[in-house]
Amino acid sequence: MEISQTTINDVPVVSVSGRIDAATSRDLETVLNDLIEQNQSMIVLDLGGVEYVSSVGLRVMLAALKKVKPKKGDLLLVSMQPFVKEVFEITGFTRLFAIFPGQAEALLHAKSH
């Protein structure tokens, strides 16, 4: 798994590629926690390069969402591949997250938030 970070219009954008599994989810957790500790509550997570996510990865995203929600923030998910989207649907996670087709839509949403 690879994680890269950038900031667009003051919104942190975290892009992940590869597999979010039992081995790699901790790295994502660290990146998201670091941003939240830096008082970033509106975060875009680009999953465009992610082909696989297990429940361990879902828990990391849910934990981050639970931390930013009370701060009027959000974890905006973008560019999900079909298998990842299906895993979100099976687990009911599509109802928990704001999901966007691409970064542009998520950033527009973040701006209007």
Partner: peptide
């Protein structure tokens, strides 16, 4: 991928 996920969840 589907089998890998099922096995990962069982092993988790």
């Amino acid at each position: 991928l589907e089998v890998m996920l099922a096995v990962e969840e069982a092993c988790t």
